[in-house]
Nucleic acid binder design. Sequence first.
DNA 1: AAAAGCTACTACAACGTTTTCGTAGAAAAT
DNA 2: ATTTTCTACGAAAACGTTGTAGTAGCTTTT
Lengths: 336, 336
Amino acid sequence: MNTVNLKQLAKELNLSVSTVSRALRDSWEISTPTKQRVFDLAKKMNFQPNPYASSLRKHRSRTIAVVIPEVANNFFALAIKGIETIAREKGYHVLIYLTNEDGSEEMSVAANLQSGRVDGVILSLSGETKDMRHLVELQQRNIPLVFFDRVCDSIDAPKVMTNDYESGFVATEHLIKAGCQRIAHLTISMSLSISHKRMKGYTDGLLRYDKPYEDNMIVHCEGSDEENYKKIRDLLASGQRPDGIFASVEKLAVQVYHACRELGLEIPGDVKIIGFSNLVTASLLSPALTTIAQPAYEMGKEAATILFRRLEKKYILTPDDRVILPARLEVRNSTL
Amino acid sequence: MNTVNLKQLAKELNLSVSTVSRALRDSWEISTPTKQRVFDLAKKMNFQPNPYASSLRKHRSRTIAVVIPEVANNFFALAIKGIETIAREKGYHVLIYLTNEDGSEEMSVAANLQSGRVDGVILSLSGETKDMRHLVELQQRNIPLVFFDRVCDSIDAPKVMTNDYESGFVATEHLIKAGCQRIAHLTISMSLSISHKRMKGYTDGLLRYDKPYEDNMIVHCEGSDEENYKKIRDLLASGQRPDGIFASVEKLAVQVYHACRELGLEIPGDVKIIGFSNLVTASLLSPALTTIAQPAYEMGKEAATILFRRLEKKYILTPDDRVILPARLEVRNSTL
DNA sequence: AAAAGCTACTACAACGTTTTCGTAGAAAAT
DNA sequence: ATTTTCTACGAAAACGTTGTAGTAGCTTTT
């Protein structure tokens, strides 16, 4: 509990509270010698202005919220790092909220943020989010919102994303060129636009190369890890086994490896695998995993930069800036 | 910017601000019908109390800070998840600060936290931290501090850690029993007590099994990733090549894999490897990595639980509770 | 010499809550 | 019938800061 405040400094210096406040903010209204006296004492007493008093008065908290589905995942961890880096530079504080892919948790977080606790929000949708009212309400309260990765197309807000459609296409194309005849796609919640886009890239890829689209080659992995694993294993154990798999997220690619191991399938001999992933160990897996790697750190930095531009009203930009940072294909042995 | 406040509710209901405030907190001083009227209107107008006004008045922010060296690392990411889970349950908010292993960043964060912005702090030391004054000052301001993993022995505060000494011993013992004659230890900053303990476990392990301790088998990896990699490669390329390596942190184990690949060394044939790690892909590496896995999520939860116990003054415990959550050895092919 | 302007400060209200103290009116006790 | 107690509410201060509106004392302008 902090206890040294402006009043104490003022009394000690025989000045008014307002003078001390202004001196500390280096106002031109205060004479240099007075400023010096104030600075010295503030330093000596280790004065730290109460941020809550300041926020209350100024209607600005210099705090932002980052709302993400999970953190134990290289993509989001790197994004946080990017956001935190920019926030630090700008003197902002970062509150973190994990929704655990749960739409109702996301709603309650958003509702809470309407209190004015933060000046702005950077958000990546949970897989379960269907209803966007909570986000619209945030905007109605004039709390700037920036999406990253899992964006919401129906809300008019800046978005930082990767080229999901192209990446989906490229991934599929890559598998086809590697000789795959029957390619499966493992996707997460189809309420996410990234899922749609990646899937569209996949289907267009099949189309472009005259490969048939088969319904049962689409595996919706929206359940628990165990349920997803079971679905993947069933796919691989079925008579209709695919010879190529495109995983839309990292954890699904990892599960394919486990399933192949359990079933005694060889990668890339029996099945080739490509997945969206930021695994640092991709190249060390057995075999090394071909990935679509998103520029997670840069996306975090970009999202934060856009948000701060809004907060500092420095933008005469379009109301709906949309930044696309391309993912890159990293070919490794799993699709040899 | 939030705009509906107590005053507006009060006017609308023909009540005083104090009555509305009390009604919302379900005070016994307010009649049931009045409470109901207040609740209804608050809900209808989507009233969210201003947290800054509240914090200012109550001298409590219901916010904690988590200060960690990095986040793009499974251990810390899981710890954050644990902390956030408990914080959510308790209705607390979580500010996150990354020190990037930089002692001066840690200092400036700690100095800033003296403002009273948070009710408590959960911290894992940066590798560069030598001077602990900034943390002592935090405590002097009555801001409870809980350490986890990279604790500071010289400060009297609760600590949540793993059995680093035993784990170091077990790791070394495991390598010896696997047939290693010359075991190297890759360590990070020796100003961290975890490094000391893990190292002591290592040296005691050597001693116990009559293996010689050699200075040049200790590699201090405190520099950039590139520098560390070079040191590791040099070690493996030297005439004095070890046949076992104990990496004290995850990223160093990963670098050993890369170095072995570059040098054409076979794991575990030429070199066996064990490392502290929470990699989800440990079992999928080529070969699978034997790990000492820390219960990261549980450690985060435990640290948060202890902190909240302090914040809610519910503890009649020892002033210096120290919780040790044991790591577990997961034997895989890299030490076959 | 009076008016205007400037410099360096101060007083005070305001931000939105919570809390302490107080009180009107009804019910209960004497 | 008077006093006491209780119930349900209100007025106002306080938290620590910042912004607006002064103002005393000096210098400059007319």
